[in-house]
Nucleic acid binder design. Structure first.
Lengths: 194, 194, 194, 194
DNA sequence: AATGAATGAGTATTCATTCAT
DNA sequence: AATGAATGAATACTCATTCAT
């Protein structure tokens, strides 16, 4: 089900997340996609290209998940919470993609650049909102970019248990959305005015 | 300078941090250490063994950096700040090791376990202190483990710019200890009593 | 000509017979088979596997050569002579395989076990026939198994000159089937009744 | 005990017999001799040289064992029996050397030549005696060289069980000198006059 | 004389990629 | 469009041999 191209991307996403770029092999991607090895090359010019497209798809799917959460007629905290929640749900549903997009990807330098770019975009989005919150008197006066970085770190930390080993079910179950919200509440308490 | 064994570990540390375990080659480790390829095998039985020892050395050097910061006669916040500062300094001085120890290492499953273990130890240390802070009325009532995870995320986020590309000097210079302290201040504001 | 798999087995058979298992290299097997080195691994999982299959093929081809010589309506001596002749012809036509199957193969312990097994089967076949010959009064009363071992030794000794160096043509030409028969005649004279 | 040189030869003899020339390593020879790896090179110029000397020592020790058995004032059969007995005892006491000297050594072409030389000397010795036995009317008229080959094969076959695996004690115990004598008796019955 | 340390040349094996069908 | 077959280039690891002490 799904076009061959999609099946390849799916298989690649899972495999790259499990083993990293170098340790993953085109042969296993093909096997998991249920097609012949050389067919992969009908759709992608190289292993690098597969990885690039995998990241791109993951990125798009991530940004899609964020869309529409921004300009809502409510407090900045609510907007940020909505975004954070979207992040949480994305990680829960697309664990593999989430791992691929995790900040630290120790492999293939060019991929790191790509990912750093995404990080910058997220920070920009956050800091813009935080700046607005400060202007509107909702948050106290902090360095918006720095606060944005902190928020990103908090999101990653709270989602981290979701990213490890399929079998570690216990840990995962403990990671509820309520706990997640209590976690980011610490951040908001830290920057709210007064 | 330095024993051969140390030179190998140094070269390996840098290379693993740059390329990840799989993409790094024993030959390049040897080249960087300024020795013949097979000499590496006089000191380490296999590439895996090199990696294991690299992690072990990094871990020890990290834990050493934390030592003596714990039982000081002052507020819990001060203790946590001291630990955080030690973390910051460690990352600044041992950038490569720090990257190796970064929470997400997408390669070699057994290494991931090792690193998750370290993460747990750090969370345990943090949450124990936070629990104490709550008991002493310094912090408000929060889930200590959750708060510990948040703190860890904050530390990682604030140190992240130090971990990327040697050439990106501009970003690094912007990461001062003062900024770092202002960053974790957000966390403390979020959990202080009142 | 011949499937790739067969060409590899052929090349391997010759090379193993010439140099032994350890000294033979996969690269040379491939070169002799006229294919790329890695193509070998499309057909066999490892060097060990190549060797195993080579032995298996040699064994089968040897046992095939023996088939149909057993239950003939004539004297046991004639049956044994027929078998011995088949052995002789096999050695002459499949010199390399014959060397592989020679009793003493100083390399790779597990191969030795395999070959000892073959030796046992041959001895069992011989001693069974000899026992029959004794029962029928054709041979005198000797330990059948011991006599079987002796016969095997005689066969090997008489075929030995065929097994060495391709260039030593002179010696080989001297080894005729008539000489071979005169040789085993000594054995028969030694065990015939009266 | 014994000079270093002797200890090396001893260790090498055992190792070559176990694994064959190529699979044996200089390092293990040194380890078994209880000396440093490079010390081996103080006594032997190369691995090949060690092998050559090992064979030479084995050969000498074998020929020594045969000495004095030749010109005795009795029947040729008795002389041959004495030689055969010496062979049997040698194999029993110097199993490793015996394996090295076994007719088929599938490794290192130049060694094969050496061993073929030994084979020729033994055949020459046997056939000379057999010729004498024929001249004296003790044996019937057979091709002396061929008979010599047959005798050699019989000796090897009867000693073969002694050459395999240290642990296979059962088989070895079954190989008594009496059984051995009954075995060669078959040969003698085959060539005795009348 | 003895050896620990060092290494270059090799060896089995893997894998991204190409090509004929 | 799809793929089985083929392979060159790489890579971890081994080992005979050298050399400084």
């Amino acid at each position: 089900m799904g076009s061959k191209r999609e099946r390849i991307l799916h298989a690649a996403e899972a495999l790259f997340a499990e083993k990293g770029f170098t340790a993953a092999t085109v042969e296993e991607v093909a096997r998991r996609a249920g097609i012949g090895k050389s067919t992969v090359y009908e759709y992608f010019g190289s292993k690098d290209e597969i990885f690039r497209q995998t990241l791109k798809a993951g990125l798009e799917s991530y940004l899609d998940a964020m869309k529409g959460r921004l300009k809502q007629p409510c407090s900045v905290r609510d907007v940020l919470t909505a975004i954070a929640t979207a992040h949480f749900n994305f990680v829960k549903e697309h664990t593999f993609t989430a791992r691929l997009l995790a900040d630290e990807y120790n492999d293939t330098p060019w991929a790191r650049q790509w990912l750093l770019g995404l990080r910058e975009r997220r920070i920009a989005m956050f800091s813009s909102l935080i700046r607005q919150g400060i202007a509107e008197g909702e948050f106290r006066l902090v360095d918006p970019r720095m606060a944005a970085e902190v928020l990103l770190g908090v999101l990653n930390a709270l989602c981290a248990p979701l990213l490890n080993g399929k079998n570690d079910g216990k840990n995962k179950d403990a990671v509820t959305i309520e706990r997640f919200h209590r976690g980011i509440a610490i951040f908001f308490e830290g920057i709210l005015a007064k």
